[in-house]
């Protein structure tokens, strides 16, 4: 075992068992992003509310989940809550932990996106007697979303890797299945080389998607955007579709 076998690494890469782990990793990430965005949006709205109870709760939530390791949150949900008679399946535990955690980060991203839209935009909407809903959906949200894409992308990149922590509570995602293969064959470098390659592929694909999104929605500060008129209707409908 004093050498590295590239063939073995390639074999692990195409190992069906490992590939299924990759799918679980992707599934966890996608579900946590969607759940986290919905919950995070709610937390952000509460945080921006003038109601001190709502904004106080939201502040506490963000403080708590950003201030404690995801690993502890997962372990508490998986092993701690049953002590109180609350028991979920492994995958549910992982999803609850990931969503609760991700929501705290996304809430801050959503909030700072909205804060960065100038007050003048809202005032112009009011002056035109747009309803609060129209102001939100057609004026502030599309502009805030554009500003959110870069930090959102980074957060999703972190999340993709953070799903590996779910291995600790025995979710059979990429990391866990790599461990299992490793313990069976003891080809540590070969197995993890394959896992590493998968993580790099996933993050690179996401990077490419993020770059396209940024280009699509115009990455420059909206006021200075000089995009061609032709591309715009597409951009706008997509903002709305995403909304």
């Amino acid at each position: 075992m004093s050498h590295f076998s590239p063939t073995a690494a390639v074999n692990y890469f195409f190992n069906y068992f490992l590939m299924k782990g990759v799918l679980v990793t992707i599934g966890l990430t996608v579900a946590a992003v969607i759940g986290g965005l919905i919950l995070g949006m709610g937390i952000a709205l509460m945080r921006m509310s003038s109601n001190p109870v709502l904004s106080g709760f939201s502040r506490f939530y963000i403080w708590f989940f950003r201030g404690t390791p995801l690993l502890i949150q997962l372990v508490v949900i998986y092993s701690g809550l049953p002590q109180l008679g609350i028991k979920f399946s492994v995958i549910t535990c992982a999803l609850v932990g990931l969503i609760l955690n991700e929501a705290a980060y996304l809430a801050e991203i959503v909030r700072s996106g909205f804060m960065a839209v100038s007050a003048g935009q809202r005032e112009a909407a009011w002056a035109l007697s747009l309803s609060p809903w129209t102001t939100f959906r057609r004026v502030t949200l599309p502009q805030a979303f554009r500003l959110m894409i870069p930090p959102l992308g980074n957060s999703i990149n972190s999340l993709l890797k953070a799903t590996s922590l779910a291995s600790v509570i025995s979710v059979e995602e990429l990391m866990r299945r790599s461990d299992m293969l490793m313990q069976e064959h003891f080809q540590i470098l070969e197995v993890y080389a394959a896992a590493t390659a998968y993580y790099l592929i996933l993050t690179s694909v996401w990077d490419a998607v993020q770059r396209r999104l940024e280009k699509h929605f115009g990455r420059s500060s909206a006021a200075k955007s000089r995009r061609v008129a032709a591309s715009a209707p597409v951009a706008q409908t997509s903002v709305e579709a995403r909304a």
Partner: peptide, 27 residues
């Protein structure tokens, strides 16, 4: 009432025409 601001406050993500038709259509 209509209002015109020092800093224009046009909606930057909409075309000129879209800026103009938003309120007539939604309000």
């Amino acid at each position: 009432t209509g209002m015109v601001f020092q800093s224009f406050n046009l909606f930057p993500h909409m075309t000129v025409l879209e800026n103009c038709i938003l309120a007539p259509m939604t309000v």
